[in-house]
Amino acid sequence: MTGDAGSRLASTLRLFLAGLLTVLLLFPIYWMAQTSILPTSSILSRNPDLVPRLADINLSAFETLVRQYPVARWLMNSATITVGSAVLSTVCATLAGYSLSRFKSRTASGIAFVLLLGRVLPGTLLVLPYFVLFRWAGILDTHTAVILANASMIIPFSTFMMKNYFDDVPRELDEAAKVDGCSAMTALWFVVLPIARPGIAATVAFAATASWVDLLFARTLLLSAENWTVPVGIASLIGEVQTSWNQLMAAGVLSVLPVFAVYWFAQPYLVGGMTSGAVKG
């Protein structure tokens, strides 16, 4: 009996500890959000209120931001690049991951090695030759350039995510389908892929997040302001005299909302994929 009460107390204590830690860790997000809904007059204070006064709250920072800068355009550009990169890298990673999981050969292990290499190369190192190559190919300053660059960073990682996922799908399933007269392609399409749907969802979520947050490639390969993505736009606001802190934080809030939405739904799949991609990779 005392043990029961003791364990309840311990569990309450842990809940309290977890709550405290969460509050501390999420403080930057909270502070960004609360600054974005306050007027400039109340944020430029030497003694800021940790909890905003209800009377002060308004959305004027968002209004001014959207009026002064082409935020809608940035969001559209980011969306285009995100969808493009996610589709391209998921298709490539799924096919390659299945191949690496089912067929072992020298060519395959060679390709696997090059993919591993791709996971450790710094982006700042690759963006240099990209700049020269893409200018030569005539796609500098286009969304295609950023989509290709993003895919080259995502595919090496997500291929191993998909390979590990397919490793857990029993081989007997494809073989049974083949005995029933399916070709290798139809077996993959109608039998294996439907089972692998959670893995594909994780790969899409990972690819979409990685390209949504990209600053390096978009900032270097997109020269004209009308092609800018959200991160490039935000980077251009830093240090601008006419941009106040609450507008900057409003831009920050707009940039995290889509990823939080994706993350909220895909988190269970993502966590599994991230660990397996890192450990077994």
């Binding site: 999420l26 991160p231 935000i234 995290v256 990823v259 994706v262 993350y263």
Partner: peptide
């Protein structure tokens, strides 16, 4: 959650 926050943000 911070894992999903863009670096620039």
């Amino acid at each position: 959650l911070p894992w999903a926050v863009p670096g620039i943000t």
